[in-house]
Amino acid sequence: MQHALNSRILIEQAKGVISESGEMTMDEAFATLRKCSRNNNLSLTKVATAVIDRTLGLGTLVPLKGIAGA
């Protein structure tokens, strides 16, 4: 249960980063995270972590340094 809570916190933080930097709503930010996750066959938590760590470009959501574990 703690893992699920930690994942949710990461996802919420990433939504905030995307929303602020990308000038989009929180719903649009989540849709962007989800699309990137699905398109790259990565977990939502991995994508969220990459956004928070700034290893994923926010403008285009293209990996800048690569995503660990990808």
Score class of each variant (00 low, 15 high):
M26N: 13
T25Y: 08
G22E: 09
I67C: 00
Q2F: 12
Q2H: 10
S7G: 11
Q2Y: 08
V17W: 02
P63V: 02
L58H: 08
L44D: 01
G69I: 06
L56N: 00
A31D: 04
T25S: 15
R34E: 15
G59L: 14
A4P: 04
A14M: 04
P63Q: 05
I67L: 02
T32G: 03
K46F: 05
S37L: 00
A50R: 01
R8Y: 13
R38Q: 15
S21Y: 10
M26T: 14
L44G: 00
D27G: 01
R38N: 15
S19W: 04
A29N: 00
A48T: 02
M24T: 08
L44M: 02
R34M: 10
G22Q: 06
I9F: 10
T45E: 14
G69W: 01
L44V: 05
K15S: 00
A14Q: 03
L61H: 03
K46Y: 07
S7I: 07
E12R: 04
L5G: 09
M26A: 14
V62F: 11
T49Y: 12
V62M: 13
D27M: 06
I9M: 08
G66L: 08
T32D: 09
N39T: 08
N40M: 14
I52G: 07
T25W: 09
A4S: 12
T55F: 08
S21C: 12
L33D: 01
